[in-house]
């Protein structure tokens, strides 16, 4: 089985977010970058499947050379090889067009993404890729089993889940529950240094939308404390002041 896992390079989850003076770019000073947490789940599931059934796992990232550290981490976790498309990822449409362009004649049986990137939170790439490659795409998948060329997946829906069956090849976006992320061991870290990382130049993509400004939300005012002996007061405030009950 040939699996492709799309990995995005995102600011660590504890990062305080700051923007440059132009308000259109993210200030990366002092920021630690990591593999998007959902992509780590996808990668781990890909490794479990290929370890059990044979096959290879390629990771792909759209990014400039600064993302190589994140790609090496994916190789250390266990990916077979890596591809980096050498461009700053403008938006999900740009990213998906690059991945579709690379993957179209490579014969992947399975392409996995994360459910969303924790920076742009688009939840777009899996479905965009599905449409661009004319393949089925299943979003926000909590469980993925493969047997004899057919996948059984559980997709999250409001208040429950849906069980889906689909022949390979397919695209799925990974959510919590699909696998427990793996931590690279020493041997993985050593071997990652010599695994192949191919750099490919990007294709041109039309520009459909632009982020013109980032802004930080205003903080909440001072918290209003109510004594534990006067819980009624809280209910009154929620009714008459906050108007939420």
């Amino acid at each position: 089985m040939k699996v492709l896992v799309c990995i995005s390079n995102v600011p660590d989850t504890t990062t305080k977010i700051n923007f440059n003076d132009d308000k259109t770019s993210f200030n990366t000073t002092g920021v630690q970058f990591i593999i998007n947490p959902y992509d780590e789940i996808a990668l781990t599931r890909a490794l479990e499947l290929t370890e059990a059934q044979g096959g290879t796992v390629t990771v792909i990232n759209i990014g400039d050379p600064s993302t190589d550290a994140t790609i090496r981490k994916a190789l250390a976790i266990g990916a077979t090889d890596a591809v980096r498309i050498n461009a700053i990822p403008r938006d999900a449409y740009f990213v998906a067009t690059q991945i579709a362009g690379y993957a179209k004649d490579q014969g992947f049986d399975l392409i996995l993404t994360g459910r969303e990137s924790i920076d742009y939170n688009g939840a777009q790439v899996a479905s965009l890729l599905g449409e661009m490659m004319d393949l089925p795409s299943i979003s926000i998948v909590k469980s993925l089993q493969i047997e004899g060329g057919t996948a059984t997946l559980e997709r999250e829906i409001e208040g429950g889940k849906e069980v889906i069956s689909c022949p390979l090849p397919l695209i799925a976006s990974a959510s919590e529950g699909m696998a427990e992320p793996r931590i690279p061991n020493m041997r993985g870290i050593m071997s990652a240094r010599t695994k192949p990382l191919t750099v490919v130049e990007p294709v041109e993509v039309p520009n459909l939308q632009n982020i013109i400004k980032f802004e930080k939300p205003e903080g909440r005012g001072q918290v209003k404390l109510v004594s534990a002996d006067e819980v009624n007061k809280l209910v009154d405030l929620l009714h008459s002041e906050a108007k939420t009950i």
């Binding site: 977010i17 924790i118 920076d119 939170n121 632009n210 982020i211 400004k213 930080k216 939300p217």
Partner: peptide, 11 residues
């Protein structure tokens, strides 16, 4: 954007 830590205005 940034998981609730910011807004993005998209044209």
């Amino acid at each position: 954007a940034f998981s609730g830590k910011a807004f993005a205005d998209v044209s």
